[in-house]
Design a binder for these strands. Structure first.
Lengths: 191, 191
DNA sequence: CGAGGCCTTGACCGCGGTCAATGCCCGTGG
DNA sequence: CCACGGGCATTGACCGCGGTCAAGGCCTCG
């Protein structure tokens, strides 16, 4: 499948994959499309699928005291997965949603984990992936603990300037751990 | 080596290990002792060793604007490792310190990673470990973002009541992301 | 043209921060 | 053995960041 090429390319850049592993993996993957604001996975479902964004934008969010909190944004060539649910196989309090019309690769987790037995390179690749996500999360933890809301906003704009073009402020605010009102003020005084 | 038994037991509880893998691993491990307040690894060094606490207490900390911030506590049967440095092989801004006289298992990372090639079960075990740490960190991130200092303190006391017996309040405060003064007030008003 | 979503702005408040003084415990040396 | 000094915890005074509540402007879309 040609449409999967960006996906395979991304994976191979982390750890080389044998031809067989690539083919086996591709056999299990499928491409799905979602419309703007459509739910890719819903709250309460146990996570059994890993997604890779080909086009569009995805986000993970959950409800905290009735208001939406955004935990993660995914752009083309990003993976998106509710790790706490996948790795514990318990129902997730979180949902995955398409913020634009999107095309994604769906990788079913169980067959993938099965492939680890016959394809060591796949398991190693996956381990490296988890390590990366872990390190990213450690950094985010440090930031949220010790930077002010304004510093976090500036940092985010430096690292992901594309966010601001495509994503409603209210989602960015909750991602930063502040309210929409506070974010609006921060932006206001920078002018 | 008999002293390593708790370590092997802990690992096996996560994922079974073949006798050969166990023996190979044990050959690389050593037991080290540290005195109270001694540094196990220093700031600036790139992390090349994974530790497992047999007895005593360890912590990871770093300096934020000149003041110590505690990132992690490890009790007997816990692993302790500066993951961001180990997984990126860059110098760590963090240190590992013994908070009591301690006995630890030192596992050199490079030989361990080599063993992954010949012992798949070891690599899988390690992957599971990283997954767990990742999930733990995701939870901590949520807590620090959306609980008040008081709620975080109460939660920590429920989950790890042994902390309070053995660890100076100032370390607990910085672990919670607040100052020693604020923590003292929180405790004060609970009486 | 009206309705609803999104963003901004003002008024107000409380959590947790800083600075500084005080009390307490403990190890060390006269 | 007591005196002193230093580290840790507590407490008070004060303040600022970011929260809530509410009103108002501006889009877009039916």
């Amino acid at each position: 499948m040609n449409a999967l090429l960006p996906f395979i390319k991304y994976l191979s850049s982390l750890h080389p994959l044998s031809k067989e592993a690539q083919e086996q993996l591709i056999d299990w993957c499928s491409i799905k499309t979602f419309r703007k604001n459509e739910e890719i996975q819903t709250i309460g479902a146990t996570c059994k699928t890993i997604y890779f964004i080909l086009s569009g934008i995805g986000r993970i969010y959950y409800l905290k005291d009735g208001v939406e909190v955004t935990e993660y944004f995914a752009f083309p060539n990003d993976l998106i997965v509710r790790a706490e649910s996948l790795f514990t196989q318990t129902p997730s309090r979180k949902a995955i949603q398409a913020l634009e019309d999107s095309q994604v690769v769906a990788i079913p987790a169980d067959p993938l984990f099965q492939l680890f037995d016959s394809h060591r390179d796949l398991e190693r690749l996956f381990r490296i992936l988890v390590q990366q996500s872990y390190v990213d999360t450690l950094h985010r933890l440090e930031n949220i603990q010790f930077l002010t809301a304004e510093e976090r906003y500036i940092k985010l704009m430096e690292e992901k300037p594309e966010l601001i073009q495509h994503i409603p402020l209210k989602h960015i605010a909750s991602f930063l751990g502040i309210t929409q009102v506070s974010l609006s003020r921060i932006r206001g005084q920078k002018r």
